[in-house]
Design a protein around this nucleic acid. Structure first.
Lengths: 162, 162
DNA sequence: ATCAAAACCGGAAATATTCCGTGTCGCCCC
DNA sequence: GGGGCGACACGGAATATTTCCGGTTTTGAT
């Protein structure tokens, strides 16, 4: 049998096609019963239960989360903020402070001319402005640029933090 | 009682603090039982069930989704691609083509010098390169810039698409 | 070919969800 | 002031689902 590249390393994190399909099914709808999933992958309820337990134990299936309508919850604005850190900035402090803000939906250290890409979800443009003011006042950033999301073509699922 | 701004419009999309807390709880862990949620918000199981049904009907609670370890599934690379569309580009065609690609985890029309921000999750840098080649070959883009995610400070949950 | 570990299955027990019927509260309209 | 109505909440019964367990089959290594 020929194995996909990801399985060649001989690690214990082996995933077969059934696991992959189960993950895809639960990605689309985590409320399906194990019996329903079993019917779609050709396994019994208990076999699905076993696989889910193993996927969780291995950390592949992290958790189930609700996908919410951010706008209906009063958060209609998505903004992307490019950040170049100040030379003297305490980078660990910046990271901790960013992670502590629940309106930050994503933050990556990135290649290129900017240090970080910060994605936020907010109630208003005024809130975006306040966030930028906070970033600046704290002395972390040398410069930044902000882009607002207009329409959305592919929408990532939204969760509240904290 | 003083209501938040979002409730002043008199729309039927009224959310009270209990709904908000339920949403937050399910955002963190959608596998809690209704009894557990009820204990945390001070409601009976059936009241929680009612509220969940109403939140779903109103479209506020969209669905439950699994949060997966993308790296363990063979998708360790996150890239952000800024796209400026070609003048003659068929924008609707671009959107449809982007939406059809499962490796695209987010795509927004944005303000600023770029037209679109496309976020992709891939198995390798070669795959990123192939994606950029596809974008270019299709004739949609005038220019683009790609930034790779290095470390991650705040990680959005990951789902497989399709 | 053989053996041990891993994975699967069906059925029983434990939990969870859903579906009533009923009661209370607030609000609007007589 | 007094219905009447709709929205919510509750407890309990009826379903449905998950979890556990013992036994069998498959898989992989030697």
């Amino acid at each position: 049998m020929i194995r996909p590249v990801t399985q060649l390393a001989g690690l214990k994190s082996m995933i077969d096609d059934i696991d992959r399909k189960i993950c895809a099914l639960l990605s689309a709808d985590a409320r399906q019963s194990m019996a329903q999933i079993g019917a779609q992958v050709g396994l019994s309820t208990s076999a699905v239960n076993d696989r889910l337990r193993r996927l969780s134990e291995r950390g592949i299936l992290r958790r189930m989360r609700a996908d919410l309508d951010a706008a209906a919850l009063g958060l209609p604005v998505t903004a992307f903020v490019w950040v170049a850190l100040a030379d003297a900035a305490d980078e660990a402090g910046f990271r901790a402070a960013i992670a502590a803000r629940p309106e930050v939906t994503a933050c990556h250290h990135v290649t290129g001319p900017w240090s970080y890409l910060v994605q936020v979800r907010m109630g208003s443009l005024a809130a975006v402005e306040a966030f930028l003011g906070w970033l600046k006042a704290a002395g972390w950033i040398a410069r930044s640029e902000t882009m607002l999301a207009l329409s959305t073509v592919v929408e990532p699922s939204f969760q509240l933090r904290e």
